[in-house]
């Protein structure tokens, strides 16, 4: 991890001092452990605050839309796919970007760690290749890193950036034989009524705070459909139908665009597993249209495209 940090700083310094970019977007240490925060370094001094470890889960692509300056950005596999999407969807120009690709072995799920600590406060954390060492008062714990990954990282099949200018670490081996859709199939096997109740329970706690929407790099509309007033067809309350409409259509708007970066679930204050909506769409898009989001900057997203022989068994 330290090696990544060194290389990020080195590249950032070079790019800033050569005047190649105006800003470098990466991470710096947060005020509490397991909580790095996005950081925009504009000077060589600021560069030294940049770090890299397993707590860089925030998708930095979210900081790119509508920027007009020249930007270097550190990008994991998922981030890079969202950058590709941003390029395709005119949110930023490729020429503006210098992508510092960060091959990724998954980000740490702070909630799992927290559960493991059972209320104890960590004061220092060391991350090595395969392990996490946590120290604190009455606390010394060594955890197996791979057991504490974000759910989406555990099943990730695009750990390496798909588009980059420099790499800040060696390319990693992609996970093989990953079953990405076990949970989707579980729901598919349910009866209609069970499905309905499953999703009712899933979103029952939603407080309509829109943290998921705000964290999602692909949600960048000036006015979200839930705020539409011509007419206002979705209520803003936590009425179950309105809440479901929100989650349903939010997911639908991500059809063929979601990279399963996990930003939505990461940001949810009430732990809603809203990836269950988007993953179903991801699975269908792959199966029906043979398309994966954010892989190819030459291709429009799945719904901006068609093939004459697209599946249509559902049409009479």
């Amino acid at each position: 991890m330290q090696a990544y940090t060194e290389r990020i700083r080195e590249a950032a310094k070079r790019l800033l001092s050569d005047g190649k970019v105006d800003v470098v977007i990466g991470f710096r240490k947060g005020t509490i452990p397991f909580m790095n925060e996005p950081y925009l370094a504009k000077t060589a001094e600021q560069v030294d605050q940049l770090v890299w470890d397993g707590n860089c889960g925030v998708n930095l692509a979210n900081y790119l839309p509508k920027r007009t300056d020249r930007v270097a950005v550190v990008a994991k596999g998922c981030d890079s796919r969202n950058i590709v999407e941003h390029i395709v969807e005119n949110q930023i120009k490729r020429e503006q970007l210098h992508i510092l690709g960060a091959p990724c072995k998954g980000m740490i799920d702070k909630r799992r760690i927290k559960a493991e600590l059972k209320g104890k406060e960590p004061t220092s954390v060391e991350e090595t290749e395969g392990e996490i060492e946590i120290k604190g008062r009455d606390l010394k714990l060594t955890l197996n890193r791979s057991d504490f990954l974000q759910e989406n990282c555990a099943i990730c099949i695009h750990r390496n950036p798909v588009l980059y200018d420099d790499l800040v670490g060696d390319l990693v081996e992609e996970q093989k034989d990953v079953d990405r859709y076990a949970d989707v199939r579980q729901v598919e096997a349910m009866s209609t009524e069970e499905k309905w109740r499953h999703f009712d329970d899933l979103i029952a706690g939603c407080i309509r705070c829109y943290a998921c929407r705000n964290a999602c790099p692909a949600c960048y509309c000036p006015t979200c459909f839930v705020d539409e007033s011509r007419p206002q067809w979705v209520g803003k309350t936590i009425d179950p139908t309105d809440t479901r409409t929100f989650h349903f259509l939010r997911a639908y708007h991500l059809a063929g665009r979601c990279t399963d970066c996990g930003a939505c679930e990461r940001s949810c204050p009430v732990d809603i597993k809203m990836r269950q909506f988007t993953k179903k769409l991801e699975k269908d898009v792959k199966e029906l249209f043979d398309y994966e989001a954010g892989i190819n900057p030459e291709m429009r997203p799945a719904l901006d495209f068609y093939r004459p022989d697209d599946p249509q068994a559902f049409i009479k």
Partner: peptide, 14 residues
């Protein structure tokens, strides 16, 4: 394409 995904997602969610 839109309808294929919409129908599937509606059915998937009950």
């Amino acid at each position: 394409r839109k309808f294929a995904l919409l129908k599937n997602l509606l059915e998937h969610t009950g």
